[in-house]
Design a protein around this nucleic acid. Structure first.
Lengths: 219, 219
DNA sequence: TGTACATCAGTGAACGCGCGTTCACTGATGTAC
DNA sequence: TGTACATCAGTGAACGCGCGTTCACTGATGTAC
């Protein structure tokens, strides 16, 4: 019922929207420095609230980080979808289907390179061991239900529909594509290829993406 | 001149081989818990020496971690080479060349899954910012000179020699292959696919590797 | 063969860091009567 | 319409953690004479 001010400087004792304010601040921390930068005390500081206040809205720092992961994953999906809108051209349905996969892969990598902090946060491993009780290792975000993953699935369906991939080859195609772009992203963001940039990087990415698409279509 | 005991429990004041002992202990720490587990104090503890003593042999914890990275990379290369020895069968030179690439990729992943700690250490980003002076971000291990990378290059040369890949396509093939297996490794070790194992995982890996190899050969 | 001494390789105590988290608390809010 | 009170949403001080690193030091070693 009460209006929820989105980014009003705090004047009242009760914040009114502290949970969102905190997770927003945490997202910005991740944007700047990846998952390790998601420091609960710092998020509280930025919102202008005591660190303790955060515990009214999150069980722990791990919960806060989980929220960030989800938001980062959503940003990634949104970036891909947005880019996809641009590619409605294409000679025939086959070319279009291929162009869409290629375009999504490029958009994925563009996101990874322009938002490395968020990208790392999206894929960081949450909630570690936690000793002997509790669920050792939750399935964390059910990744198959992630919008980016679903989107990729649709594009691959398109490849089959347009006759650019056999139906038999369809089932595991997501993993082949995802692992390829994920590997590229990490190799270039923080892996041994992080010194490589510009034209050289762009060429390597084109080459690698084309290799995978060719591999899905070939024979 | 003096004999260097490899793993004798310490009795003398002077250790005699402390640098190696420390980096060995650090390697085992990484094996068990990845790069974050490479704790200088703990390595010293395990060797039975004060933490300070480590500073006679390493400038900092980062130096120690660097040593671990190199050793982990070497173990990886050794594992691949060893596996490669097994595949001397093959109908013709073409099949053999392809089999060797496939075999190396599988050995790479097998190493990643059986030694996730070392694998992560090998690819972790060393020496962070270090504020405003000094080299922002050293090229760290010159990766192109790494034995694993060189080895991959030779296998790809073999593909060209056997007529399974055009010479034109050769130059960037390393990156396409490496990013593929790296992405698979991380997705399954600590990424969103870490719950997937056994047959399902094996099938996904076969599929992905074959896709890349097909992509290199196709058309 | 013995001794003085420079050098090398260790020691132990201490510091600062900044985090996540807990505790007992207080100020604000809204609902029952 | 006013008041009592339960409840909710904050506060501030404090703790423990374990690390990397520095300091002034001492024990062992080997070489010159």
């Amino acid at each position: 019922m009460s209006p929820r001010p989105k980014s009003v400087s705090r004047t009242r004792y009760h914040h009114g929207d502290l949970r969102n304010a905190l997770s927003g601040a945490a997202l910005e921390l991740a944007r700047g420095g990846g998952p390790e930068a998601v420091v609960l005390r710092e998020a509280a500081r930025r919102v202008g609230v005591s660190a303790t206040a955060a515990y009214r809205h999150f069980n722990s720092q791990a919960d806060l980080l989980d929220e960030v992961k989800n938001q980062a994953l959503n940003e990634l999906a949104r970036a891909i979808e947005q880019d996809l809108g641009k590619c409605e051209e294409g000679a025939g349905p086959g070319e279009l289907a291929v162009a869409r996969v290629r375009s999504a892969a490029h958009a994925y990598l563009e996101f990874a390179f322009s938002e490395p902090g968020l990208y790392n946060a999206a894929f960081c491993r949450g909630r570690r061991p936690e000793s002997t009780d509790g669920p050792q290792d939750e399935p964390d975000v059910q990744f198959a239900e992630t919008s980016a993953f679903v989107l990729l699935g649709e594009l691959l369906d398109g490849l089959v529909a347009a006759g650019r991939m056999t139906a038999e080859r369809r089932p595991m195609a997501e993993i082949a594509v995802w692992s390829g772009v994920h590997g590229l992203a990490l190799l270039f963001i923080e892996g041994p290829l992080r010194q490589v940039a510009g034209e050289e990087r762009a060429a390597a990415i084109d080459y690698s993406i084309d290799t995978i698409i060719r591999g899905l279509a070939a024979e």
